[in-house]
Write a protein that binds this DNA or RNA. Structure first.
Lengths: 150, 150
DNA sequence: AACTAGACAGGAATGATTCCTACATAGCAT
DNA sequence: ATGCTATGTAGGAATCATTCCTGTCTAGTT
């Protein structure tokens, strides 16, 4: 989703995040990109408009935005960290073929709970559900690609 | 769960995994350890009985066992890979304080599905649910530690 | 017992992420 | 508006889990 500069600034101030050109650029890039990009992908995207941008700033900023609750980290396996500008409650479909991550917004999935017997004193704050399988494209190219995954 | 050598061998053969001392030792160590250890933790554990064991062999073996479906990889964030000898369908509670991972066996959680509208052509093979929060111990030491996580 | 594909040890290489340092600037107080 | 100070930024070095490479070894088979 394309955001106006003033909207970005407003969100930053609402979440007590310092407003800088770099942060705005990084957040804007992430908000427009629903593919759950990696830090490095964001770096390369943002660098086109801000050639001085440092990779370090991207990591630092993503950390700050995450702590502020403006950005979410999505992970597939122990692979590279990927980021999501959508911080509403939702889950993900992950393709084992191409690594694609697709958002799943489903009311049913937002009502899960662990039985207190199973929770064993845990104070549960939230949860995430990751569905894995093969996307439409990958079913065609590798219809037999089924590996044990857990 | 402590496993007899012959039981390990039987499982390996059943899954067409070559039986070697190293693999048996690694698998045995993982089967006895429900803390979801990292590859390096397993390496250090196994090295006590097998001083020649190479770290590489641990990674290689865990990869082979995972492909064979005898071992499962559990991940918290993009952190170090952790492994689970429990390959029955189950989910996890993850403590944001100490990183502890606890198994959750709950029939209710084994019946989730994505609506076909949301799945968008995806062929779903399975899913995992990760609950996050603070364990009993960490609630006492850091009762206020609540960070945005998603 | 011999063969061969696959496994092992050890060390080098990779690469995402973090750390370090000097400089710049946002946001607040004057 | 001006200066102050905590925080952000650029750039490069360091870290460290994981993978790659190479030569040797061995499990499972002929």
């Amino acid at each position: 989703m394309k955001l106006r500069p003033w909207e970005i600034e407003a969100r930053f101030r609402r979440h007590a995040v310092r407003v800088t050109r770099q942060r705005a650029a990084i957040y804007a890039a992430l908000a427009e990109d629903t593919s759950h990009p990696t830090a490095d992908e964001l770096y390369r995207t943002v660098k086109r408009q801000h050639p001085m941008m440092s990779r370090n700033t991207v990591y630092y900023t993503l950390g700050a935005l995450r702590q502020a609750g403006l950005v979410q980290e999505v992970n597939v396996g122990h692979e590279v960290a990927r980021f999501d500008g959508n911080v509403t409650v939702h889950h993900h479909l992950i393709c084992r073929g191409c690594g694609r991550i697709v958002d799943v917004m489903d009311e049913e999935l937002n009502r899960l709970a662990v039985s207190s017997r199973q929770a064993g004193g845990f104070h549960v704050l939230g949860y995430r559900v990751e569905f894995y399988g093969y996307c439409a494209d990958c079913q065609q190219t590798r219809p037999d690609a089924v590996e044990h995954c857990g």
